[in-house]
Design a binder for these strands. Structure first.
Length: 235
DNA sequence: AACCAGGACGTGA
DNA sequence: TCACGTCATGGT
């Protein structure tokens, strides 16, 4: 198939060419043993779009999506590791933990008070699903789940093609002058979805690639100097 | 040693 | 609707 050569696609291809497949969402509850150590690139699974598979793996992605809110993945994944040490990468086990146990496990990810509440909320929601796939509007009603987290859960835990927009995405595309800075979440999301084939691997890789790209060129002010995408845009 | 991370919520205008 | 303060820890 020949993909439409719109600008959104061109950027995707360029990023993929630069960084290759990213293998999101990283799992530690994957291949059983060998939990990832701090800072290690282990747990990613490039070119494998079948994960997560097991119930606890799906749950792990959901837990991670809460823990990484406004927090680096390095610290969020450390919290996931700590929960795993308590055997809590399982919904029923997590609910058995005391609040203080959850908080001490996730403390390294910050916002421990609200995130411990959010974790229990989304865990109850997950159990009630009883193996079903959540509806986006219902996810959004869970306390602690906003638009990005809802889309992350759908895209990475359930393989539902919902494009994930984060601050990096907005930052990059406003710097490239493709969108206005105050563009709404749903509008920016629609820009991608209307220009891309509705395919989970594309959505997953694109978002992950944008994060990788932003870490290199947009993680400090001023944002974007030396961004190779600029020359691609202005050709 | 400030700055900020793979956001969301509550409040008041 | 929308701007703004708040939540918290640790890496760089």
């Amino acid at each position: 198939m020949s993909e439409p050569e719109n600008q959104i696609y061109q950027i995707y291809h360029q990023l993929y060419h630069l960084y290759g497949p990213q293998g999101w969402w990283p799992l530690i509850n994957f291949k059983g043993k060998n939990p990832r150590k701090k800072g290690q690139k282990q747990g990613y699974h490039p070119l494998n779009y079948d994960l997560p598979q097991e119930r606890d793996q799906i749950f792990e992605v959901i837990i991670g999506s809460i823990l990484t809110q406004n927090t680096s993945w390095m610290q969020a994944s450390a919290a996931v590791d700590n929960l795993n040490q308590n055997g809590a990468l399982n919904p029923e086990k997590l609910l058995e933990l005391k609040d203080e146990e959850i908080k001490s496990a996730i403390r390294c990810a910050g916002f421990l008070n609200q995130k411990s509440t959010y974790l229990k909320e989304i865990t109850r929601f997950f159990i009630e699903l009883n193996g079903g796939i959540p509806v986006r509007n219902e996810l959004l009603q869970v306390k602690g789940v906003g638009p990005e987290t809802a889309d992350s859960i759908l895209l990475y835990a359930y393989k539902v093609p919902e494009f994930v927009v984060d601050t990096y995405t907005r930052r990059i595309f406003t710097h490239l002058k493709i969108v206005e800075e105050n563009i709404k979440y749903e509008e920016l999301k629609e820009l991608f979805q209307s220009n891309l084939a509705r395919e989970v691997p594309v959505y997953q890789e694109y978002h992950a690639l944008l994060v990788e790209h932003a870490k290199r060129y947009y993680n400090k002010k001023p944002h974007g100097p030396g961004d190779p995408l600029l020359s691609l845009i202005n050709e």
